[in-house]
Amino acid sequence: MDVLLHLFVGLHIIGIASLLGGFLTQMPALKQGTARFNKAMLHGALTMLVTGVALVGLNQAQDYSVDNIKIGVKLAILIVILGIVYVKRDEEKAEKPLFLTVGALTVANIFIAVLWT
């Protein structure tokens, strides 16, 4: 069961890398006003959602402690990110404040995962 848990942790990290990487690759375009929400960001957020739910389930199945408040905050942030990226994914240009909000929420989600103990 631990192998499965580690597999989902790795997939979760790949998801966050895709979301953050998709954001960072659009930073030069943001200066020109042509940044857009790309497929990497959408698929990264979806991967994080699915693997995050699986991780919570696997941890609870093994009677490991799960901080439900932390998970709830991370889930709420991810749902906001996913909602923005999903709704705006087909637009030619992303509004700068909205695009920066997604980046800030992504970084916040990373720091919550790492620092909230």
Rank of each mutant, 00 (worst) to 15 (best):
M1L: 14
M1K: 14
D2R: 13
D2M: 14
D2P: 08
D2N: 15
L4A: 14
L4C: 06
H6Y: 15
V9S: 04
V9R: 12
G10L: 15
L11D: 00
L11A: 02
L11I: 02
H12A: 05
I13M: 13
I13G: 08
I14A: 14
I14R: 09
G15K: 01
G15H: 00
G15W: 01
I16L: 11
A17I: 09
L19R: 01
L19D: 00
L20M: 07
G21T: 03
G22P: 02
G22K: 01
L24S: 07
L24G: 04
T25K: 07
T25Y: 05
T25W: 04
Q26C: 01
M27T: 12
P28L: 08
P28W: 08
A29Q: 14
A29C: 12
L30T: 03
K31I: 09
K31T: 08
G33W: 00
G33D: 01
G33K: 00
T34D: 10
A35K: 03
R36I: 02
R36C: 07
N38F: 01
K39I: 10
K39C: 06
K39E: 11
K39T: 14
A40R: 09
M41Y: 02
M41E: 02
L42W: 12
L42G: 09
H43N: 15
H43V: 15
G44W: 04
G44Q: 07
L46F: 11
L46Y: 13
L46S: 07
T47L: 11
M48L: 14
L49Q: 05
L49H: 05
G52P: 06
V53H: 08
V53Y: 09
V53F: 13
V53C: 09
A54Y: 08
A54S: 12
A54T: 13
V56H: 02
V56S: 02
N59C: 10
Q60Y: 10
Q60I: 12
A61F: 08
Q62N: 15
Q62W: 14
Y64S: 12
Y64Q: 13
S65T: 14
V66A: 12
D67T: 09
D67V: 10
N68S: 13
K70H: 08
K70T: 08
I71K: 08
G72V: 05
G72F: 06
G72A: 08
V73E: 03
K74W: 03
L75K: 12
A76H: 07
I77T: 04
L78E: 02
V80H: 03
V80R: 04
I81W: 07
G83L: 03
G83I: 05
G83C: 03
G83S: 04
V85Q: 03
V85R: 03
Y86H: 15
Y86R: 14
V87W: 15
K88H: 11
K88G: 05
D90Y: 15
K93Q: 08
K93D: 06
K96L: 04
P97D: 04
P97C: 05
L98K: 10
L98Q: 11
L100Y: 04
T101H: 05
T101L: 15
T101P: 04
T101S: 13
V102Y: 04
G103K: 00
G103S: 02
A104W: 10
A104R: 10
L105I: 12
T106L: 02
A108F: 07
A108N: 03
I110A: 03
F111P: 00
A113Q: 00
V114G: 02
V114K: 03
L115G: 06
L115C: 05
W116T: 06
T117G: 12
T117A: 11
T117Q: 13
